[in-house]
Structure formats: structure tokens, C-alpha cells
């Protein structure tokens, strides 16, 4: 791995952790369990386009593990991990088809992040009824996914000019 790559990994991992922290500071009304803004997903989407899927995978992994260690505690780790990896997997696939723009990829990422989390939660409490909240999570995932896609696209334009 080249020095430049190492620096990018470190920089983006740090940004992703920071975004997760900023998100925790924003009080959002908790209407639904599992509802999140997914700010850290901005960084993952940027990495997916600016670097590659491999980098996005490792940065997601580092983010989830370190955020768990630093702020959230390990109890929530399983949900975060399931959400993050599920979301990244779907985003990578959609990006590979080349039919979707960054906005479509980001929307799918947002929605599947929520679905991944709720699936694991349903397994842990052994109750499929959690699916009751699926419509809210779908709707919310689409909304935040569009915003995140737009932000990521703007940032990428800047990054590609400067780096």
C-alpha cells in the first residue's frame, strides 16, 4: 500500500468516526427504533466513489468497531455492524451495475442500513413484529439517502479537483 493510500484510509476513517459522533450529538425525536440520520454514510459513499469498495469496507469496519469502543459500548455493535455491512454490500452491487447515479446508490445504502439493523434486532429479540416499523424506516431511509447522495456528490467534485 502506498503512503498516499494509507493517509486516505486514516483520514476517511477518522472522518467517518467523527460523523458518527456528530450524529449522536443531534437530538432527533425517536419515533421509531433504529431511526438514524446515517451521517457516517456520507463518508462511506464518498470512499466508495473516491477509492473503491475494498477501502469502503475496511473504513466501515474500523468506524463501527471504534465508535462502539469509544461511545456506544459493544452492546449495539452487532446492529451497527449488520446495518453497515448490509448497506455497503447493496451499494457496491448497485454501483457495479453502472445504471445508478451516486444518489440511487446512496438511497439504497440508507434503506438497507435500516433494514439490516431491524433484521438483526428482530432476530435478537426473537420477534418478527419489529417489521411494523419498516414503512417509517423505508421512507426515512429514502429521504436521508437523497440528501447524503447530494452531499457526497458535491464533496467528490471538490475532492477530485484538489487531490
Amino acid at each position: 500500500m502506498q503512503g498516499k493510500q494509507v493517509a486516505y484510509y486514516g483520514l476517511f476513517a477518522a472522518l467517518a468516526i467523527l460523523m458518527g459522533y456528530v450524529e449522536m450529538l443531534i437530538p432527533i425525536p425517536l419515533l421509531v427504533p433504529g431511526m438514524k440520520l446515517g451521517l457516517a454514510n456520507v463518508i462511506v459513499v464518498i470512499v466508495l466513489y473516491f477509492m473503491d469498495a475494498r477501502a469502503a469496507f475496511f473504513i466501515s469496519l474500523v468506524r463501527v468497531l471504534l465508535s462502539g469502543l469509544l461511545f456506544a459500548g459493544f452492546a449495539g455493535l452487532l446492529y451497527s455492524l449488520a446495518g453497515a455491512l448490509f448497506s455497503l454490500g447493496v451499494m457496491t452491487l448497485l454501483k457495479k451495475t453502472d445504471k445508478f447515479s451516486i444518489i440511487g446508490v446512496s438511497v439504497a445504502g440508507g434503506v438497507f442500513h435500516n433494514i439490516g439493523q431491524i433484521l438483526v434486532a428482530a432476530l435478537v429479540v426473537e420477534n418478527i413484529k419489529l417489521m411494523y416499523y419498516l414503512p417509517f424506516l423505508l421512507f426515512f431511509g429514502v429521504a436521508t439517502g437523497i440528501i447524503i447522495g447530494v452531499v457526497a456528490r458535491m464533496t467528490l467534485g471538490y475532492l477530485n479537483r484538489r487531490l
Binding site: G104, P135, F136
Partner: peptide, 24 residues
């Protein structure tokens, strides 16, 4: 946004509304 994006978003919103109606 590409065409596929719009289709994806519409399908997801449609599913959300569908599930919501079903549950309510």
C-alpha cells in the same frame, strides 16, 4: 439523477406506503 434512480426511489416509497397501509 438517472432513470434507474427515480425508479428505485419510487419503488421504495411505494413499498413504504404499501406496508404502512397494510399495517394500519
Amino acid at each position: 439523477m438517472k432513470k434507474a434512480d427515480k425508479i428505485l426511489i419510487l419503488v421504495l416509497l411505494f413499498l413504504a406506503v404499501g406496508f404502512a397501509v397494510f399495517f394500519f
